[in-house]
Design a protein around this nucleic acid. Sequence first.
DNA 1: CATACTGTACTGTAACGATAGTACACATGG
DNA 2: CCATGTGTACTATCGTTACAGTACAGTATG
Lengths: 129, 129
Amino acid sequence: MFFQVDPHNGLPIYEQIARQIKFAVAGEVLIAGELIPSVRELARELTINPNTIARAYRQLQDDGVLELVRGTGLEVASGAAERCRTERLKLIRARLRQVLSEAKQSRLEARELRELVEKELSSVERQRS
Amino acid sequence: MFFQVDPHNGLPIYEQIARQIKFAVAGEVLIAGELIPSVRELARELTINPNTIARAYRQLQDDGVLELVRGTGLEVASGAAERCRTERLKLIRARLRQVLSEAKQSRLEARELRELVEKELSSVERQRS
DNA sequence: CATACTGTACTGTAACGATAGTACACATGG
DNA sequence: CCATGTGTACTATCGTTACAGTACAGTATG
């Protein structure tokens, strides 16, 4: 698994994990019916408290992304990909809007902002996919 | 003063205030030598605890943005505009990079992402300056 | 001088996120 | 059957953020 967690991100860790799993489902890195890493395993891998992982998983169940298979683990719910794709788009759009709005509000000149965006965008596109 | 604070922003309130003041200094909305609103006044205006405002101001002093005039208040330090401009650019660039990187990492297609950015960018530019 | 305003310091309380440790019901595999 | 591995629940502790209230030194203004 390729999850990354940053404790100083502002976002709570359990939130980061839940979101990354949703994004993985949206991108079909995790497929319906597939078992996800166990609470203890992922906790060991990320050196994070199992309770924190469990909280993320509980939230994902509440959101209908994961389903419990008793005694075995949690699997990706069928039909979750669609919903996750929608949610992913909404989240990214909101984040983007917030950043751009802040930049604009800070009286950064429009030209400067557009240059910055162009530069970072092409920089990101040049990364390994 | 035109400060806005959102308690559910992830960022601590004192951090939001400090940043907005830095941005105001960078954009020369606040000029060197100018007195900023008093702790109690700003607290009343934003309906926020004075301690929280005081904490933001203390941090701004540590960063050399504000200078204490004893018994009178805090004024914008001379030469702070330059440093604030630099810091503003760094902060916005970092935020932008993070959002775009997340979007890319979530397997959103490059074309989709670019469209999204274009749309939001022009939307923001259309706002009141 | 006296009042009212500055920033600052201190204690205490509450909520939240994260950690630590323990315990339980359930299912799988030997 | 039994050991192991699932998720889940519970209590307790710690640090950070924010709030509430009080107090104090310093300065401007009357």
